[in-house]
Every structure is written in C-alpha cells, then in structure tokens.
C-alpha cells in the first residue's frame, strides 16, 4: 500500500500534512509519535473513516482492504462473541450458516473456542481485544490498522498478546500499520518504525538504525536517548585528539557504557588501546535500579546519566567522582 502526499483537514485545521508512506506486504510498520501528532487521524483516513483532503492511496495490485482495531475493543454489546466476529461477513451478505461455520473456525485462531456464545461484558479485557482483532481479521484485510490496541491492558497481558498477534500475522501474512507509544512494543514487533510529529512523518528506519542514527534532536529526545551532548562539548572533553565526525554535530552514549572510576587505583588498569576520556563531575541525583544505581552527574553544566553495577558502593550526593567515556560507544547524529 502506498500513500502519496496525503493531507487531512478537519474544520480548517490541518491535521495531516503531506504524508508519503509505503507499507510492503507482510510487513509490520510501527508508527510512533507524541499524542496529538495525528497518528489516529492518519489511521482513520486510511481506513476510510475520514476523507483525505488531498492525496492518493494506492495498492500494489487490485484495490486492497483494511481492518481497524482501536484502543477500546468497541464490541457490539447486544451481540455474542460469535455474532460480533461474524458481523463483517453479515455485511457482505454471506448466508447465516456459512457465516457461523467460518466464524467458529476462526475462533480457533483467536484461542477463544467455547466462548462463542458469551456476551462482551462476560469477557476479560484481553479476550475482548482478541474478539475485536478477530472481527477485523476474519475479513482477511490486506492491511490491519492498530490504534494502540493493547494500551489499556496490563504489562504481562500486553506482552502475551503482542506475541500472539505477531505469530498470527506471520501465519496469515497480512501487513500491519501499528500505532503505539510503548517503545518495547514497537521494538518487539516492528520491521520498520516511523516517527511522526505535527502531522508529518519525520523519519522512517529499521529499529536499530533509528537508535544508531536519529534524524534530529527532537527524535532523539522522543526516543528518550540519554546523554545527548553537542560535538563542541565532546571535543572539549576528548581534547580533540580524535577524529570527531564533521557533519554530525551531536552524539549520545548509553548510560551503561559510562563507568565510574576511582581516580587513583583504576586509572592504570584502563586499556590504553581503547580511546577514551575521563570526565570529572559532581553527583547530583541517585536512585537505585535493577543492576545497581542510576546516578546523575553534573559536569561543566552538562547532565550525564550513569549506571553503576552492583549495590555495594553507594554513591553519595555532592561527591566528586570521575567517569570514563569510551569514544567508540558514542552514536553521532545531526541536530
């Protein structure tokens, strides 16, 4: 499916501004962005619920079909699970008996056998969302549109459902345009990720590439990448003994790669082959995490997030410490 210069205008305000996007068959494309960036509007536009003001929607071969699932399951309260799933077939005019057989058959895919005669309010949240997915999938859409489908479920259930859905997707082979604001959800399913701000897609990349090379500072900030420091500052710390990139003017480094050192004893143990620099600063914040402590260090008006391993040595506030930075772990990008 291909979108060409899509624009959506609602009540004179432009929600979606000139979006180009291609989704390949069998692909899971995850769309992320802050709330109000127009993700839901774009999905509704593709599903045909909101008209495009201008632009074109094209399919590879014949005209493709879409299915959409929202954050709330929106199951019809007066219909049973089976009737809900068969709703789209009923719209198509498929006779009752065949409809029933198809729907019963499909329930196996959804792992909802034996629940077919329940009503929505008798199901758990996860079951309801599975019915909602099934209701869209039984129509065999070429593209499934998901609008934060699992956002209102708790974490473990969410992970189970993500697992289940991506297996189902691999088996049935449809493509997905998946809107979410959970990074873990995006990373566990996405073939490609698109970042959207203010009605336009800012960057499209494979998940790994996205982290290695965010297109702008804004995207880096949205992905909450730690220790985003300007080239000038890095330059100062490394005392320009290394070849800093010339085109990219910012770099970030993961908190796990920064290491706190004792100034005297550890200095000589450091492998001289790895180029690195030492920054001294003052501890301004300390909080425990899974593997040790996350501390915040202030150095020359920059805030650095550092993770330490082990709980034995508790960093003290206002303590003066030194941090070693391995140069090769810095990822460079353009502001």
């Amino acid at each position: 499916m291909q979108l060409e210069r899509i624009k959506i205008q609602i009540n004179q305000s432009i929600i979606i501004n000139s979006i180009d996007l291609q989704i390949n068959s069998g692909e899971i494309f995850v769309l992320m962005g802050p709330s109000g960036s127009g993700k839901t509007t774009l999905l509704k536009g593709i599903a045909g619920l909101i008209p495009f003001t201008s632009g074109k929607l094209r399919w590879e071969e014949k005209h493709g079909t879409t299915g959409i699932v929202f954050q709330e399951p929106r199951l019809f309260p007066h219909l049973t699970v089976l009737e809900n799933i068969a709703f789209g077939l009923r719209v198509k005019g498929i006779p009752a008996k065949e409809r029933r057989n198809q729907a019963l058959d499909f329930l196996k895919n959804l792992q909802l056998e034996s629940l077919e005669s329940r009503y929505p309010h008798q199901l758990s949240g996860g079951q309801q969302q599975r019915v909602a997915l099934g209701r869209a999938l039984i129509l065999k859409p070429d593209l499934l549109l998901l609008d934060e489908p699992f956002a209102s479920l708790d974490t473990s259930l969410r992970q189970d459902l993500i697992e289940w859905l991506s297996k189902l997707q691999r088996r049935l082979g449809f493509s997905i345009l998946w809107v979410t604001h959970y990074l873990d959800e995006a990373l566990s399913v996405a073939d490609r990720i698109g970042i959207m701000f203010e009605g336009a897609i800012q960057q499209i990349a494979a998940p790994a590439a996205l982290f290695q090379n965010p297109a702008t500072e804004k995207i880096a900030q949205f992905l909450s990448l730690p220790n985003r420091i300007s080239r000038k500052q890095w330059n100062k710390w490394f005392q320009s003994e290394l070849n800093l990139p010339t085109t990219q003017n910012r770099g970030w480094i993961d908190s796990n790669h920064l290491q706190v050192i004792d100034r005297d004893c550890q200095l000589r143990d450091i492998n001289k082959e790895v180029s690195s620099c030492i920054i001294s600063g003052i501890v301004t914040k300390v909080r425990p995490n899974r593997e040790g402590y996350s501390i915040q260090v202030t150095s020359e008006n920059n805030l650095l997030d550092v993770n330490t391993l082990g709980w034995n040595k508790i960093p003290k506030l206002d303590e003066k410490i030194s941090i070693i930075v391995p140069f090769e772990k810095i990822h460079w990008y353009t502001e």
């Binding site: 619920l49 929202f70 709703f87 719209v91």
Partner: peptide, 11 residues
C-alpha cells in the same frame, strides 16, 4: 459510539 466501528467493518 458505533457508527465508525460499523463502517470500519463495511456496514
């Protein structure tokens, strides 16, 4: 509440 959902299923 329901119009959008119904249209999405082709109704």
């Amino acid at each position: 509440d329901w119009r959008e959902q119904s249209i999405a299923l082709g109704g």
